[in-house]
Design a protein around this nucleic acid. Structure first.
Lengths: 151, 151
DNA sequence: TAGCCTTGGTAAAGCTGGTTGACTAGTTCG
DNA sequence: CGAACTAGTCAACCAGCTTTACCAAGGCTA
């Protein structure tokens, strides 16, 4: 059917997120939203980040990012310590509970991708990934695209 | 890169929606959100729907759906009339301004798909659509997946 | 090194788009 | 008929975000 790609993109995102959330909840991480998962992944790759950087990565204001980090801090997922050289800044890093969660998330994503690989085949999955990437850069005109879907 | 498909799905959705919204805003439909576009498409395909049906389609409660329809009514995009046989129900249909918008949305989506077809080729685009569909049904386990992404 | 702009974070108010719960009125079915 | 269900309404509430204003630390330039 023509004109259904937007709905397909929306639905596939939602399906994946629901699936991950359900399994995460079963492992005791019921209070984790998609946004948190993306923060964890970001922190695990970079080692640490400021609230402003997190905000830019997600596509929200720095105030909203700080608020989000506050919550993750309260729940023991991340810690904050003063920046070594910049007195204004505070560096956010993953706490043990955050690491536990990100490991689980990575496992779940990997598991899903294996499942899709069985379903589509290695080549088609690689093509899917590649095509989505090209579609994004062509559609966005090269500008950075926020992660957060706006509804 | 492994494990990036969730981000790819999120970003592609966002990129498409931003693009459509920008062009729509330039045509005088700046007050239309993605959710509205999906409602318009739904109504144009079915001819009409109740608030409850719209809510189910989007993945929100009936109260939220009514509220959304209220707003679209106030802005002249849809109209409501009593259901011919069911006295409780009110049928929502597209008003002229709604039709104008949905035609524009369809055009924009079609234009984007042509662009992607140039980019990926007809076959790859068809594969992309097909693969996303299979991915959705495999990941959701057959349950209906709400359109609305939750963040 | 003084002055000024920039940048990271904080504080508070407010808004948008939803949810939950309780209710009314019309419908369906045994 | 009466019980159970369904569409819509009303009102209270809430999460997550934005806006505006601010402060203190850093960087640049004369």
């Amino acid at each position: 059917m023509a004109g259904d790609l937007p709905a397909l993109l929306a639905t596939s995102f939602r399906a994946v997120m629901d699936r991950v959330h359900d399994q995460l909840a079963a492992d005791g991480f019921a209070d984790v939203r998609p946004a948190h998962g993306f923060v964890f992944q970001y922190l695990s790759l970079r080692g640490g980040a400021t609230a402003v950087e997190i905000g830019e990565h997600l596509g929200i204001t720095k105030q909203a990012a700080v608020q989000l980090v506050d919550e993750l801090d309260r729940r023991g997922y991340v810690e904050r310590r003063p920046h070594p050289s910049d007195g204004r800044s505070r560096v956010v890093t993953l706490a043990p509970r955050g690491w536990a969660c990100v490991h689980r998330v990575v496992e779940l994503w990997a598991g899903l991708e294996r499942q899709w690989e069985d379903l589509l085949g290695t080549e088609r999955l690689a093509q899917l990934r590649d095509d989505l990437g090209r579609l994004i850069s062509a559609t966005s005109g090269g500008r950075p695209v926020p992660l957060r879907p706006l509804w």
